[in-house]
Design a protein around this nucleic acid. Sequence first.
DNA 1: TTGGAATGTCAACAAGGCTGACGTATCTTG
DNA 2: CAAGATACGTCAGCCTTGTTGACATTCCAA
Lengths: 171, 171
Amino acid sequence: MKSEHPMTETRSGESLLFLTDEQLRQGIEAMFFAYRGFTADPDLILTELTYGRAHHRAIHFIARRPGTTVSNLLNILGVTKQSLNRVLRTLIEDGLVKSEKGVADKRERHLTLTADGEALEQRLSDAQRARMRAAYRTAGPSAVAGFRQVLEAMMDPELRRRYNAMKETDT
Amino acid sequence: MKSEHPMTETRSGESLLFLTDEQLRQGIEAMFFAYRGFTADPDLILTELTYGRAHHRAIHFIARRPGTTVSNLLNILGVTKQSLNRVLRTLIEDGLVKSEKGVADKRERHLTLTADGEALEQRLSDAQRARMRAAYRTAGPSAVAGFRQVLEAMMDPELRRRYNAMKETDT
DNA sequence: TTGGAATGTCAACAAGGCTGACGTATCTTG
DNA sequence: CAAGATACGTCAGCCTTGTTGACATTCCAA
């Protein structure tokens, strides 16, 4: 079970090299280390404001879908409403997010960023995009395409659906 | 600033499409959603054992580097020794990890998995690899190469160094 | 009019980060 | 050999962010 020759090829010329346990393990570690880098820059900004990643996530998706409802946000973020509510409350108190009763359905709360909220969102996403941009530049366009394909294939179906819905409906 | 034509090409035929803010934002969201999938399967197993991701990370890197020291693990994981120690203590108490005084340097503790620890490590990494393998199959070999390139470019230099060191020295 | 959906909120708890302070072996170096 | 540095463990306390459970309010829709 230990060392099947790594250069084994199948009939159709499709390499199996990248499916060895060792290759998969390297992919796993790459995800682990890369995710640390992915969050490192925004985290610095958030810490100095005594916010956390949860605040960032809320701000990100409110920015992406201005006027979104609480329950929609709950579905995207995959946390309990109590957890989200704690974060939203501080953001609203601090004047970064505005919560407005729905017009069609007055039970719903529609969330939007205030001017201050947008300013912070810009700071955070600029920081995060800078690293992403550098990585994209280093790796090149075709690597980026592959990167996106693998990530998408790794998502749970329901989240993949949401992810693609987010892409399609352009703001 | 809003809608530069997305198909703009530069002199060398290098597409800038993948560097637009919108493309970068999609990459950011892809990372977010994919990481959820990435951790979902091991999390299920861990929860039923009343362990968390912190335990998984420790187990993973001890498995990868049997006999590694506490301080090496601290550097890889990027947490405080108090935090790591809390996790290690439970793993040792539960008989999954063995901690032994160093021979050359008796201050050091060398960590290895017990048979039970290896069994759990197998369960966890099988679950995580299954999803990774499926994603790799779906996306194909060249996508996988790109995936790895972008992730590596996204890491902090110090972590990239550790990541590559981990690859080179084959167990 | 009534059931259920959407939302908010209180309380209590746990995991897993963090800092700070200390203690104890054990190396290493002057 | 003495003194300082290093590796590790641990106690205490704090924070964020997740959880469950219970309950109130508002309002849509059948």
